[in-house]
């Protein structure tokens, strides 16, 4: 499903270069539920951005669903994001001026589906996350948990090859977080691959596999292993440009 080989990402400014990822290699099989953990600055967000084709790696190769996606054009990356990847963001990232129906509709319009197909997909996805009765509500009229479920519906409506979740419960209280995790587990049990970035060891335990990042590299990759205590792990190295 997802295979990264020797991925590096370097951010350069006039004064410093920051190595966010250093030769990271990771393989995720179809149907897996993988938690990517690590302390702040370990490279989780950079990994997520590259895995989700939101940015490109400085070097290395990335195969997604059997296709090399590391050298694609901006338009091609947009198309693959739209068709193969479902995003779930920590802050939900719903468009506040659109109701839930229209929010779920946004990626489907970019996909070019006709009105009837879009409607069917939206209703099915909202049904799946238990928000069918709230489709005409604005995001501001929903609780945080409901908003995240709406965001999950938006991610699912296009039948993606896998879901990329960025701290999906980071802005939720424990009860809502549990409901969202239950929903993700259920989605995964239905066959959708999920890669979830989190710093919460409790959430990571619910994944099939825990990949721990440290200084832009994989420190451990263990099935059903809770995350190590990462409180003392240093930020990634900042090196002056020669």
């Amino acid at each position: 499903m997802l295979e990264m080989n020797d991925i590096s990402r370097v951010y350069r400014t006039d004064l410093v270069e920051t190595h966010a990822l250093r030769g990271l290699s990771l393989s995720v099989e179809a149907g897996e539920f993988v938690a990517v953990t690590g302390p702040s600055g370990s490279g989780k967000t950079t990994f997520l951005n590259i895995a989700g084709l939101l940015e490109t790696a400085t070097s290395g190769s990335y195969m997604l669903d059997g296709k090399d996606v590391s050298k694609l054009s901006d338009n091609e990356r947009s198309r693959i994001r739209n068709e193969k990847i479902g995003f779930i963001f920590q802050s939900f990232n719903l468009i506040p001026d659109l109701n839930i129906f229209d929010n779920v509709d946004v990626p489907l319009r970019y996909r070019g589906f006709n009105g009837n197909e879009r409607r069917e997909r939206i209703e099915r996805a909202l049904e799946q996350v238990g928000l069918a009765s709230r489709m005409r509500h604005l995001p501001s009229q929903l609780s945080g948990g409901q908003q995240q479920r709406a965001a999950i519906a938006r991610a699912l409506a296009g039948d993606p090859a896998f879901l990329l979740a960025d701290e999906p419960t980071g802005n939720l209280d424990s009860l809502m977080a549990r409901q969202v995790m239950d929903l993700l587990e259920q989605i995964n049990q239905n066959g959708t691959t999920i890669v979830m970035v989190t710093h919460d060891p409790e959430l990571a335990r619910r994944a099939h596999r825990n990949v721990q990042l440290l200084d832009g590299k994989i420190a451990t990759s263990n099935p059903f292993t809770p995350q190590a205590d990462v409180a003392d792990i240093a930020e990634p190295a900042m090196q002056p440009v020669a």
Partner: peptide
């Protein structure tokens, strides 16, 4: 800005 980034993330091309 965030909304535009989100639209881009979920599949909008620049021309969209």
């Amino acid at each position: 800005t965030k909304q535009i980034g989100t639209r881009r993330a979920i599949g909008a091309r620049k021309r969209d």
